[in-house]
Amino acid sequence: MIRFRLHTLFLLSGLLLPCIALAQTPLVIEAALDRQVVAPLLEAFTRSHPEIELDYRDRSTLEVDRQAQRAPAPDVVISSAMPWQMARVNDGLAQPLESKQARDWPAWAKWRDEVFGFTFEPIVTVYRLELARHMLPPTTHAALYRLLVTQKRLLQGRITTYSPTRSGVGYTLFQQDARYSPRFWDLVAAMGAADVELEDSTQDMLDGLSDGKYWIGYNLLGSYALRWVQTHPELIVQVPKDYALVMMRMAFIHRDAPHPEAAKTFLNFLLGSEGQRILAGRTPLFSILADVMGPYTAQRLRDQVGERLYPIPIDASLLAFVDAQRRDAFLARWNREIRILEP
């Protein structure tokens, strides 16, 4: 979960203030996407559409999901909790976007032309430099498991990951991990034996890593981590070499959007070449479009880390993750496995 950051809000409202004076149409965006990360995009949008008054509300994924089901409805809903986004669209809370940008959007990154995955964020492992002084840093899931088993004493209390109960993104990632390999549960058991600390958000894990509280962070959002390590040289970002999950933020226009035209304008900007260029050039969110150039594109990421990127597919199978019983069963197993090696 991405926590609300007050100072960022003040900074940005200061930036946006001149535009707000001119603004006429309000546009309410409920987003589980760090404002600081996406700021260049919002600024560019406000510059090219001064007639729209942007009301960007940065919240946690669960809070965004709650807002989407509540009246008054927001105009645009953005969240990284892919199964929940899919569930809301399946409930009929989205309206289709009919535009060239929507039509041109790759089919694998959209559903029903109603919800669009517009980022390409690899899931990474982050470790402190001092870890390398004691052991060979893990480059694969199996290596991480081996480290946890062999260096249990040294790593005790120094590993962190998402909480599957408190974070929708974390839960989704673990579900996807479990789908790929049953050995994931060995890893969970090993993490449990190493007294893993469960955090709510990538930022919390990054903070803990920078503070030296943790040595290894598992399943962090690469977008935030890559940006963080630019100013925190003590941390290393490792894209797992066996497989790396890729998370996509999903955006849809609410069915009951009070300002549907403004919402369409925003989404078209977001999916259009200009928005994607800013995404690729000035945010670490990675554009999925093949023809967009910049440091942060899915294509460039593929070139760097090879073909082992596995995006979480945007299709109806996501709904299985929000099935109440399946979730309960998964969490029950999680709780069983994480304690299974306790003495």
Binding site: N90, D91, R112, R179, S317, A320, R326
Partner: peptide, 25 residues
Amino acid sequence: PVVEIPAAAFQILATNQQERVFYAV
């Protein structure tokens, strides 16, 4: 009754036309 809904069931339900899906046990 405990059911761990297979993800494939949703994909079959949604079909290649990306239908909205409904289910209940």
